[in-house]
Amino acid sequence: MARVWIFGQDINTDQIVPGRYAPIMLKNEDDLRLYPFVEHRPEFASTVRSGDIIVAGNNFGCGSSREYAPLALKMVGVGAIIAPLFARIFFRNALNLGIPCFTADLTGQLADGEQVDLNLEAGRITSADGRELALPPPPTFLREVWSAGGIVPFYRQHGRFPGEAA
């Protein structure tokens, strides 16, 4: 089971990881795992568990190009992020790092702290009381990148960019 973490709308990258906590500012770069939502939601980093799901409002990840924002979420094992709309740089960064992102509005349908099952292949969330929520399938070229584990493994395997003719 995975815990659902509910976030509001327009969550920006300074809320995910403030610029003051960038890897270049840290003595030990691995400490980045201590800082997702360090100021916005200080209990997150210490209580999140591998596989947990972020369910957010509109425009998740707006602001900076800092890949260390989704990287911090990856380091603590966030299993998927679901939001009605993702800011584009964040979406590309998450895709490149192999974090599954689904475009859907589930903020009203799941509660913070709720335990659910996430089935990535089937694109389905099942709540503890048996409710099933469908996740819209991402476009094929995005799914290819995720299943390769990110853009670097994808490029190394295929020698081309997503959507480019083989």
Binding site: S65, R66, I89, R92, N96, L97, V152
Partner: peptide, 27 residues
Amino acid sequence: VGSDSHSTAYGCVGAFGSGMGSTDIAL
């Protein structure tokens, strides 16, 4: 393409400037 989100700046001279994260910029 720039590793800074404000790389849209280059539109001031009519360039298509776009910000990207570290992996995209590395590639």
